[in-house]
Design a protein around this nucleic acid. Structure first.
Lengths: 124, 124
DNA sequence: ATAGCTGCAAATGCTTTGCAAGGCC
DNA sequence: GGCCTTGCAAAGCATTTGCAGCTAT
């Protein structure tokens, strides 16, 4: 998987990949991933986690989620789908149903933020 | 306007309000606003701009836009509408047409990020 | 008068980077 | 072996905060 995306499969990157993709549809930030590595008694510097997440993102393995948090969130599901964000709990969830957006019980929608990402078309 | 939103109309806040709302549908961050203040030969500390933007946001005069920029963007239009974001130029635009999302000429859509903001419903 | 603001600088928190040491092909 | 990667610490940014002095009401 790493090789297929042009990344050398080092010990650290293999660990990160294992933690990230063992279960699907995960939402993580650098701290969380770093903590998980420590729980597995693996040494992994925080800087390497940041660099690794950026590499994975550029390789198309992760997608950055646009939540107004002070931290950067990544989603292991790179396909098109929407997110719930609970600011008070700093938590990110997937919108399961693709048709209707139904908030989880006990929560109400305050507002919806839609950002269409653009890229300049190169001239020939 | 400031008084109506519970903010004391100090010199600095009046200046910020003037810069922000003189024209409509503006997208700004703290740096931009600070620069504009300097162009008008007004002294306004960057910290005051940050604090002011936060106050304006909490007062409902501004809305924070969820772009994956390292800086926080604010929109003077607090109504529901969508945004374009051009990462390479660090620029935010409104989606004009409410029905179809048509990118400006010369740009193509890379992906769409939708975040539904939730809030916990307080128990009675 | 007095509660609330502002300015400055320092602190904070997240993220990136420089560089020497180590690992992968 | 040679080049890419890691780890650590330091640097870099954006943003917030502490506090003394100032300002609306």
């Amino acid at each position: 998987m790493l090789i297929a995306h042009g990344l050398r499969p080092t010990k650290q990157r293999r660990l990160m990949a294992r933690l990230l993709f063992f279960s699907s549809g995960r939402h993580i930030d650098a701290q969380i991933l770093h903590n998980e590595a420590y729980k597995e008694n693996e040494r992994l510097s925080l800087a390497t986690v940041y660099n690794g997440l950026r590499e994975f993102e550029q390789a198309g393995l992760l997608r950055r989620v646009a939540v107004p948090s002070e931290r950067a969130w990544f989603d292991t599901d790179t396909g098109p789908h929407r997110h719930f964000y609970i600011q008070s709990e700093n938590r990110v969830l997937d919108v399961k149903n693709d048709a209707a957006v139904t908030p989880p019980p006990g929560y109400r929608i305050t507002h919806v933020d839609t950002v269409v990402h653009l890229q300049k078309i190169e001239a020939d």
